[in-house]
Design a protein around this nucleic acid. Structure first.
Lengths: 129, 129
DNA sequence: CATTGACCTTCCCATGATGGGAGACTTTAT
DNA sequence: ATAAAGTCTCCCATCATGGGAAGGTCAATG
């Protein structure tokens, strides 16, 4: 099948499919008639794998490792779990950063009248020494 | 004072100071002897403002609006609060996205033995139709 | 006064993942 | 046969930041 069909079936845009091939995440697709890429079901399956992994926040780098493990039938699940655990720790760190921002901002906005007066604790905080 | 000193006092790198000037976030600094930028205390103060706003996750775009309001002594605090509230909502949405990923991944990793066996619910999930 | 080292300048490049678009070519449908 | 839709490769843009090169400027020391 051609790239548009593969995109539709996998949920990955044609643009991204070409990009994944370019950076070596996917093996170069065969060419039908030496010009259009030609995909089979296995390749669409890999694209779906990638899309789902992206939706879980894995980086391309991590996905490359997950794909390699997926292709290796004898892999130890330990290695997969390690990648996932590290990623979860990373996500939690990001959440914690963002939550810290929310906490500070909510404190400030609670103190801000938000009316026509110019006094604003939010600006006062940003401008404080 | 020269850019290195302004960077040290504000906590904003010289690279970033030039960038903020280039994109118009800051008024072009005066030049001493027509070559080196020359900063005064007020400009350092603005840089600190920017650094703190960045630490709260505001985009450059938002900071430009906050700076304009800060400079306007008669601004209504309502406008500041609107920006902050929208930003908080944005942060919360991102947290919620990330938390969803964590939840899914923790469910999967709880089910993964993480030993030498190849069976892995994490990969199985990513590869599922 | 001259050299040296620290600082400054501008310009270009890279990041990560994605989208947009141009210009040329191929396939498919009418 | 012609028109429409799909595909190809390139290049550019995002957002905020850092790295580095090549060259100019300043301050202190010999």
């Amino acid at each position: 099948m051609k790239i548009g069909e593969a995109a539709k079936r996998s949920g990955v845009s044609a643009k991204m499919i070409r990009y994944y091939e370019e950076i070596g995440l996917l093996a170069p697709a065969g060419r039908a008639g030496n010009s259009y890429r030609d995909f089979d079901a296995r390749e669409v399956h890999e694209l779906v794998f990638i899309r789902r992994a992206r939706a879980l926040g894995f980086s391309i780098e991590e996905i490359a490792r997950l794909l390699a493990l997926w292709r290796d039938r004898g892999r130890p699940s330990r290695e997969v779990k390690e990648i996932a655990d590290r990623h979860v720790a990373d996500l939690k760190a990001r959440i914690s950063d963002l939550q810290g921002m929310v906490d500070q901002l909510e404190h400030l906005t609670r103190c801000c009248t938000g009316d026509d007066r110019p006094d604003c604790p939010i600006l006062a905080d940003l401008a404080s020494p």
